[in-house]
């Protein structure tokens, strides 16, 4: 629910900045697949609890230093959203990290599940740090964050939790990205279908 709230804050602001008469709901519900620029990590599917938690944990670990830095953005509204979101994200990170440790340092079965989930998802983590020309322009204006500067804090927290969980990162250096270019994995289509069904079936409906 906090994540939906954070997304709402960001999309409302995006709609306002864009100023083309689109609302936050239009942005959330009425874009086509290649118009979404989320990282592929966050679109990976639920089902296996270890996969859900590892996905959430990697994302939480990224959001901590990200919002910490964004609090100091030259853009006042982004800074305010970051300040608000950071408080919630600390809670999320604690929650997901404790699960990683419980599972990693738990039974043989839970250790195997969380190890499999790490092997499945770690290759998506590098994309969190992807930056394009728009990012670079906004970084030079002090609005956006140079994501490369977040890597040390991110890696340190990842290692800290993995060590307590008696887990290791996969050896493979394989990295996947494309989400930030509008290219998505198979699951994204299913997600969108479910998310957009109501707006497509009943255009302009409101709760």
């Amino acid at each position: 629910m906090d994540l939906i709230g954070q997304a709402t804050s960001l999309l409302e602001y995006a709609a306002q900045v864009e100023d083309k008469g689109r609302s936050a709901d239009d942005l959330a519900f009425l874009r086509f697949e290649n118009q979404y620029f989320n990282t592929q990590l966050v679109e990976q599917k639920n089902g296996d609890f270890a996969v859900t938690i590892v996905r959430q944990w990697i994302f939480d670990t990224f959001r901590l230093p990200f919002y910490e830095a964004l609090q100091h953005s030259a853009d006042k509204q982004l800074a305010a959203i970051a300040e608000k979101s950071l408080k919630e994200t600390k809670y999320h990170w604690k929650h997901s990290s404790e699960w990683i440790i419980r599972m990693g340092d738990g039974t043989e079965e839970s250790n195997k599940r969380v190890t499999d989930a790490l092997n499945l998802l770690w290759k998506f983590s590098d994309e969190l740090f992807y930056m394009d020309d728009v990012d670079k322009e906004l970084i030079s204006q002090g609005v956006a964050i140079d994501l490369e500067t977040l890597r040390p804090a991110f890696n340190e927290r990842i290692q800290y939790v993995l060590q307590q969980a008696t887990l290791q990162l996969p050896d493979s250096k394989w990295k996947l990205n494309g989400g930030r270019l509008g290219r998505h994995t198979e699951h994204f289509g299913h997600l969108l279908a479910e998310m957009q069904y109501m707006q497509r079936a009943y255009p302009n409906m409101e709760w």
Partner: peptide, 8 residues
């Protein structure tokens, strides 16, 4: 001000 971002 909202209590939580996602406060319904």
């Amino acid at each position: 001000t909202p209590t939580y971002s996602g406060c319904p």
